[in-house]
Write a protein that binds this DNA or RNA. Structure first.
Lengths: 249, 249
DNA sequence: CACGAGGCTTGATTCGTATCAAGGAAGCGT
DNA sequence: ACGCTTCCTTGATACGAATCAAGCCTCGTG
C-alpha cells in the first residue's frame, strides 16, 4: 500500500496519444476518450537498469507490462537445467500474457539494457475491457499473435539448422525494428551470444561461429553487438530453404 | 447458406450440462442459465473420419472447435519444407485459438481417428462473452495456458535429447488422459511415429528406436500404438534430468 | 485369400553441433 | 590505469541423431 505502488500520474509519461508507440501498442484503435480511460489505469512508467528483474519466476501475477523503451528477455528455470530464454521483448510488446489466469508468473523477465515499462494492473484492465469491446479484441489479438509466434518458433527449433535459425532470428529482429521505424539493416543486439544460443537451442559457440561464417559469406557483418545485414535476400532464402528429407525438399 | 451450415439443435448433443467433458471444457464455471446461452451458440457436433480435415491452412477463420471425442493434429506447411505437426488435440481441448484476430487459419487440423467436434462461431462467442465475464475469463485462461504449453514445448525442443523428448511426450499424454478419467498407464496413441517425430523434432526412425530402448529398459511397453507405462518415476526422472553443460548440470 | 500400400523396425554410415579447451577483447569498479 | 570479470572467438574432438537402405508387419481392398 505504499505511495510508490499506487500512484498514477496522468502526465506526459502516461498519455498514450503522445507516445510514439501509439500505433503498435495495446490500445491501438481506441477512441480518444477510451484511450484516456486506458491511460488512467497505467501505473507510472518504471525504469529498470540493465540486468534488473521486472518479474521473477514464481512472483504473484498481477500486471501486464508494455515495453516503452529498451528491451527485456524472459527466461524459465527448470529443475536441474540451465535457464532457457523464451522471449525477447522490444518496445510496444507486451510482457506477461502467459500469466493471465494464473496466480504466479511462469518465467523471469529481466531488462537487457536501461528500460522503461508501463504497468497495466490486470484486474483494472479486465474491468476496462468489460466496457470497451475494442480493447477486448486487442487483447485477444495480442495473445493469438503470440500463439502464432510461438508456433513459428517451435517449427524453427525442430528441424532447422543452426544457420537457418540464426538467419530467421536476424530477419525477425530486422522486421521488428523496421516496424518500429528503425533501420532493418543496422541494429544493436542487446542480448548476449549466450542468450541467443539459449533462445535458439544452440550452444553459444555455435552462434559465434555461424555469425563469423555469415560475415565471410558477406551476408551480414557483426562488430560485437552491432549487426549490419548486407544481403537480406540471401538470408531469406537461407531461412526458407529446406534441409534433408525432413523438409520435403 | 445451406441448411447444413446454419442449423443448430438444442438437443442432447449440444446440452453442455450433460456432457462428460463439462468439467474440463470452455464453459467451465458458468451458471446454469449462462451455460444454456453458451450451448445455444454451438453448431451441431460434426463427425470427422480419420484423415479428414477440420480446417485447412489458409481457410477463413470463423470458429473455434472443442473436441468432443476422438483426436486431431494441427500441422503447418512451410515453404519448401515438410509439414510440421504443432499440436495434438484431445477431448475437451480447444482448436483454433491461434486464429483469433486473424482472417485466415494458420495451420491445418486433421482428425487422427473418428472424431466429433463442437463448433463455436467466434463472433457469437464474442457477443456472448460481452455479457458473461466468467466466459471472458475462461477464454483468457485457455489462451494463456496454451502460451505456457508452447513455451514448455520450446524448452523441450531446444536442448533435450531424443530420450527426454519422448519421455516428456509420454508423460504429457499420460497426464492428459488421467485428467480425463482414463488410465494414465495404458493408452492408445492415435498418431503415427512420423507425427510424433515431426512434433518432437525427431526423425521417425529415432522415435521408433527410442521406444524400443524404453521397452528394453522396462520403462514402458509399446505394441503398435498401444502404450503401457511401467516405470512412471524413471520416466519423470529422465524427463527432468539435465544433460551436458547446457543444462547447468 | 492374395495383394499392395503405408507404417514400422533395425542396421550402417554420415554429418551437424555440443563439448572441451584455451586465449583474446571489452566492460566495470576501484 | 589496473585487474577482475564477463563476454566472445576459434580450434580439436566426440557424440547424438539424421540419413540412407532394406526388410517386415499390418491393415484395408479386391
Amino acid at each position: 500500500m505504499s505511495l510508490e505502488s499506487t500512484r498514477r500520474q496522468p502526465d506526459n509519461a502516461t498519455r498514450c496519444e503522445r507516445c510514439t508507440l501509439h500505433a503498435r501498442c495495446l490500445p491501438l484503435g481506441l477512441e480518444l476518450d477510451a484511450l484516456e480511460s486506458f491511460a488512467a489505469i497505467i501505473h507510472n512508467p518504471r525504469p529498470l537498469k540493465r540486468g534488473e528483474a521486472l518479474v521473477r519466476q514464481g512472483d504473484a501475477f498481477e500486471s501486464l507490462f508494455v515495453v516503452r523503451s529498451g528491451s527485456l528477455k524472459q527466461s524459465v528455470a527448470q529443475e536441474g537445467q540451465r535457464d532457457q530464454v523464451t522471449h525477447f521483448y522490444l518496445p510496444g510488446e507486451i510482457v506477461g500474457l502467459d500469466g493471465i489466469g494464473e496466480t504466479h508468473c511462469y518465467g523471469s523477465v529481466v531488462a537487457m539494457e536501461s528500460t522503461f515499462v508501463c504497468e497495466l494492473p490486470f484486474h483494472r484492465l479486465e474491468d476496462l475491457a468489460e466496457q470497451l469491446p475494442e480493447l477486448r479484441g486487442q487483447i485477444y489479438r495480442c495473445m493469438s499473435r503470440e500463439l502464432r509466434n510461438d508456433q513459428r518458433m517451435m517449427c524453427l527449433l525442430s528441424g532447422r539448422t543452426a544457420d537457418q535459425r540464426l538467419a530467421s532470428f536476424m530477419l525477425g529482429l530486422s522486421e521488428r525494428f523496421r516496424a518500429r521505424g528503425y533501420s532493418p539493416y543496422r541494429f544493436h543486439l542487446s542480448m548476449s551470444r549466450s542468450d541467443i544460443g539459449s533462445y535458439l537451442g544452440l550452444a553459444l559457440e555455435t552462434v559465434s561461429r555461424v555469425l563469423a561464417r555469415f560475415q565471410q559469406q558477406s551476408l551480414a557483418a557483426v562488430a560485437g553487438r552491432d549487426l549490419t545485414i548486407h544481403d537480406m535476400e540471401a538470408l531469406v532464402a537461407l531461412a526458407e530453404e529446406g534441409v534433408g528429407r525432413h523438409s520435403g525438399g
